[in-house]
């Protein structure tokens, strides 16, 4: 297998390098890629969509249809991880473990034993050795709100600076994942329940596709945001800008929820216990 792999890789590489011979030089301003479509995008974007960040404009307006399916890809990734891994009817282990938060002492409750009351004093854990570190927990608790604030900024400011729904959504998702890593998955799932993930993820895609479908219902083509002008009481060009913001929010919601959903399923192999 190793030799076959080597042969295939060398042959493919040789073919690809052979193809590069006729490429224009790197960073050549006169290359077809830089002269065919991109001048239109660069020169007309402000006029046609009033969004200074051209990447955002192309992403969410000129090629918005691609981006809708990109959101769908990540959504279907989330659903696939869920359907493959999630175990619903899992029998409870005979012994349950609890940790007394203040002292760090672990207690084991045999089957039929009295379970400690649902309070802040005790937390449920799944293995005897569950790491808990005061410094890490506290630092992360301090950091997470700022990470989330930054995520919101990145989503909202995608029109004017690098950013947008995907980046912001990933940052928001990472904040919950940080909680799951620094504490444990149970804590993170208590903050953001599985059902919330599973509802937000399609909702985000729905905001995106629904905006497109709304344009269709308003009489123009699918994803033609200028149709929104009559709903938003603005001129068609500004309507495009607003339309981009709406779909970016949809993308942000979908990506955040799906990333968390995938993480929860992967890290606990679908059992939703402490994870990792």
């Amino acid at each position: 297998m190793k030799i076959i792999g080597l042969i295939i890789a060398v042959l493919t590489g040789a073919l690809l390098i052979y193809g590069t011979v006729d490429f224009p030089g790197w960073a050549d301003p006169a290359s077809p890629a830089s002269t065919h479509l991109s001048p239109h995008f660069i020169e007309k974007t402000m006029e046609e969509t009033s969004v200074p960040n051209i990447v955002t404009a192309v992403l969410a307006d000129y090629r918005s249809y691609d981006t809708m399916f990109e959101t769908t890809v990540i959504f279907s990734g989330g659903v696939v991880c869920f359907i493959l891994l999630r175990i619903f009817r899992r029998k409870e282990p005979e012994d349950r473990l609890y940790r007394h938060v203040l002292t760090g002492a672990t207690i084991r409750v045999k089957e039929g034993g009295k379970i400690p009351p649902d309070s802040d004093d005790f937390e449920r854990i799944d293995t005897l050795w569950t790491p808990h570190d005061l410094i890490i927990k506290t630092v992360c608790r301090l950091l997470i709100p700022f990470i989330q604030l930054f995520g919101l900024y990145v989503i909202a400011h995608g029109h004017h600076s690098p950013g947008g729904g995907f980046q912001g959504g990933v940052i928001l998702g990472a904040s919950i994942m940080l909680l799951a890593i620094s504490q444990d998955l149970r804590t993170a799932v208590q903050r953001m329940r599985e059902k919330v993930d599973a509802l937000l993820s399609p909702t985000g895609v729905f905001i995106y596709a629904g905006t497109g479908a709304l344009c269709l219902l308003l009489g123009l083509n699918f994803m033609d945001y200028s149709a929104l002008a009559s709903v938003l009481y603005v001129d068609p060009v500004t309507a495009r800008s607003h339309g981009i913001l709406i779909v970016e929010i949809g993308v942000g919601v979908a990506v955040m929820a799906t990333i968390i959903w995938i993480y929860n399923n992967l890290s606990s192999a679908g059992k939703y216990d402490e994870g990792l």
């Binding site: 890629a33 991109s38 992403l59 995907f166």
Partner: peptide
């Protein structure tokens, strides 16, 4: 050229 960046985000 903004287009490759858009494609690669996807």
């Amino acid at each position: 050229n903004p287009l490759p960046h858009v494609l690669m985000l996807t």
